[in-house]
Amino acid sequence: MATMTVNGKDYEVDEEGYLLDLSQWSKEVGEELAKSESVDMTESHWEVIDFLREYYDEYQIAPAVRVLTKAIGKKLGKEKGNSKYLYELFPYGPAKQACKIAGLPKPTGCI
């Protein structure tokens, strides 16, 4: 089993680097996961991460990109509810990359 170390503590991750136990997630763990994806975290990134974690908490799934885009637009404003905005933040796929940083499992049916 692969591990990732943050502040001297080991966290189990799968072969693609996704955190295995989402309850272990913290902002520091998120930062480290972001580094592994070469994403420089800003307020705008965290906004999406927080949204994803809340969505998962309520529905027990990571949303598909289409659903994420629509929901972000509704919650954070129209100018953010489009895939261009989300791909600028997470160039290798908002669902896949942002979910990883949020400590969520890889989304079902993700592209």
């Binding site: 309520e58 529905y59 027990q60 799934i61 949303p63 598909a64 659903v67 629509k70 929901a71």
Partner: peptide
């Protein structure tokens, strides 16, 4: 077991 029943309530988004 994972309680996956809340996921049915997300299907409207889909």
């Amino acid at each position: 077991n994972k309680n996956f029943s809340p996921t049915y309530t997300a299907l409207g988004d889909y």
